[in-house]
């Protein structure tokens, strides 16, 4: 039974990854799950300098999901290279570093700093709804996405994944822009912009007013978007949005995802990633699937 997948020439022992920002840099959940069992660890977004993030409250529970407006707090690339990368490099798993920035220059600074590091892939966050400037500005217009993608590709020494926002009129157009600019893969979806109001205090629950919705509540939206993009582009897709079980992961793969990422459900159950790996194996045994690659995009018209 083969669970190996390949994205842009990088081989993963299985398709299960984590969604950036839900797993720190691996250390916190390394207490609960064996990181060696995961296809890849995708790090919390890292910028060229430390970012303080947004004021609290930053998180709120919603029906079958949650809103967050962390604002990409991160210690900056220097600390990341010194502390977080060596930790991850001890494990037999792929390392995907999520890169964020306010401007083209800031993204490129991080990409350049990572060029001589032992990192398997870069994931470019042009889709965070919680930072005021940069970030999502690059991810909501096809021409801007095309431009930032091609600039990053000129600098990057590792294959590049562009992480797409669902907060657009047509995500397929964005997927095409990323592909034509040379992206090696795309990941989707980032969170859906939402809001929660405390009716007794008559105030926004989040200090940032709006936040990104994640969790099982968004899964059907994410599956549809993965499917639509898979019909339109040839580059591999990493699918995410509310994955909690092996069945959920299989659904994303049938829709066209090559890799899958567990996000918010890590917060519900710190053992989620392992359970998704086990669930995929169980499905393959029960359905007599010899090679996981057989099911990628297997459902279509």
């Amino acid at each position: 039974m083969n669970t190996k997948i390949n994205i842009a020439g990088v081989e993963f022992k299985n398709p299960v990854m984590v969604a950036s920002g839900t797993f720190g840099s691996g250390q916190e959940y390394g207490e609960f799950v064996d990181l060696n069992k995961l296809g890849a660890v995708v790090t919390k977004g890292v910028a060229d300098k430390p970012w303080p993030g947004n004021p609290v409250p930053r998180v709120a529970e919603t029906a079958s999901g949650m809103l967050n407006a962390i604002g990409l707090q991160n210690p900056g690339i220097d600390v990341f290279i010194e502390r977080d990368l060596p930790f991850l490099q001890k494990y037999d798993t792929r390392i995907i570093v999520n890169v964020c920035g306010h401007s083209e220059e800031e993204y490129l600074n991080v990409v350049d700093r990572l060029s001589d590091q032992k990192v398997d892939m870069l994931e470019i966050n042009v889709s965070c709804p919680n930072v005021k400037e940069g970030g999502i500005a690059f991810g909501t217009r096809p021409d801007a996405l095309y431009h930032i993608t091609s600039e990053i590709k000129k600098h990057a020494k590792q294959p590049v994944i562009m992480k797409l926002s669902p907060n657009v009129t047509d995500i397929v157009e964005m997927a095409r822009a990323a592909e034509s600019a040379g992206a090696d893969a795309i990941s989707l979806i980032n969170t859906i912009t939402g809001m929660k109001i405390d009716i007794n205090k008559r105030k926004f629950v989040l200090a940032n007013k709006t936040g990104g919705l994640s969790g099982p509540a968004i899964k059907p939206v994410a599956v549809r978007m993965v499917y639509s993009c898979a019909q339109a582009v040839k580059i591999p897709i990493i699918g995410m949005g509310g994955i909690a079980t092996g069945e959920d992961a299989i659904e994303f793969m049938l829709a066209g995802a090559t890799g899958v990422a567990v996000g918010m459900m890590n917060f519900h159950d710190p053992y989620s990633t392992q359970k998704v790996v086990d669930g995929i194996n169980k499905y393959m045994q029960e359905q007599k699937v010899d090679d996981i690659n057989e099911i990628i995009g297997a459902v279509h018209e």
Partner: peptide, 29 residues
């Protein structure tokens, strides 16, 4: 206390401003 999500230090949802830069965040959080 603060609104929390993960409870284990991964999500950075529950932070408090600190006088010194702490070893983990490097941003007084």
């Amino acid at each position: 206390e603060e609104r929390m999500a993960c409870g284990v230090g991964a999500c950075l949802g529950c932070v408090v401003a600190t006088k010194e830069k702490d070893a983990h965040s490097h941003v007084n959080n």
